[in-house]
Amino acid sequence: MKKFLNDPAHFVDEMLDGIYRAHPQVTYVNDDKRCLVVAARKPGKVGIATGGGSGHLPLFLGYVGDNMLDGCAVGGVFQSPSADQMHEVTKYIDQGAGVLYIYGNYTGDIINFDMAAELADIDGITVKQVIGNDDVASSVVGEEHKRRGVAGIFFVYKVAGAAAANMLSLDEVTRLADKARANVRTIGVALSSCVVPEVGHATFSVGEDEMEIGMGIHGEPGIGRTKLAPADAVVDEMMQRIFAELPAGNGDEFAVLVNGLGGTPKEELYILFRRVSQLFEERGAKVKHVWIGEFATAMEMAGASISVLKLDAELDPLVAAPVHTPFFSHIKA
């Protein structure tokens, strides 16, 4: 296991210690480092919380900051955080306008967020939920509610964060976040496994010349193991599945996220984006906003995912709004 760590059991808490030392923009509540919140509050604003397992940086906690999220419950590596932690985060970030939970579609997270929402309800805090389910590889059309949430949640965060910063109501922020959720699709491809520190060895193995399309960000099996194809062919196959659900016609506008899973160099992500851009061009459609880098990782897994958001007049300015978190800054062009 080629990792910088001390005791694997302290992996998450030492990482959080490093984060708080580096970034005074965030802090924690209830004396629990795993209950991360923004340091600066804004009365009357809808609070936005997320949460999920560790090992996906900058997901999830990396999006807590100006114009994005207000708090995050941090779980163990690939483990849902507890209802209790989410409840503490919820109490802190409620500023009188209610709280929106945005997280990925995993049983553990759903159950814990549901419980947290019930606890918040007892405190008189209104909580709404939007559950990311963008991974087209994890279930067929018509069964979208079963799909996993992966990197596309970035767009949901960005839209919801901008809407809340505009001081919209909880209902409006929820509606817009849900609209983003419904219009984003992601597909990933993995070239190698990740290593969970407490486990100490690769979660799965992929042959030296193989790739797995549709693999989840915890190493959940995808839809097919094939020979590693040239980059352009890989993108063509990935984008075909996305275009099947988000048709890109003449004049349509999109935001695109090319996301590295951890072990893939940025150089390669740009080679992938080159082909993505060509495919939109061929269709006369426009990639209006693009982000390329690591946004939702699976530790050191080599591989990448492509997320596409269909824009409209309402989503476009929200996606384009500037944000500033310790892990991600976006400056208006």
């Binding site: 163990g76 483990q79 849902s80 955080p81 507890s82 209802a83 995993y106 814990n112 419980m115």
Partner: peptide, 14 residues
Amino acid sequence: VMTIGGAAGPLYGT
């Protein structure tokens, strides 16, 4: 609930 985490924790806990 507070210690098992994941899916099983809240289910056994409930």
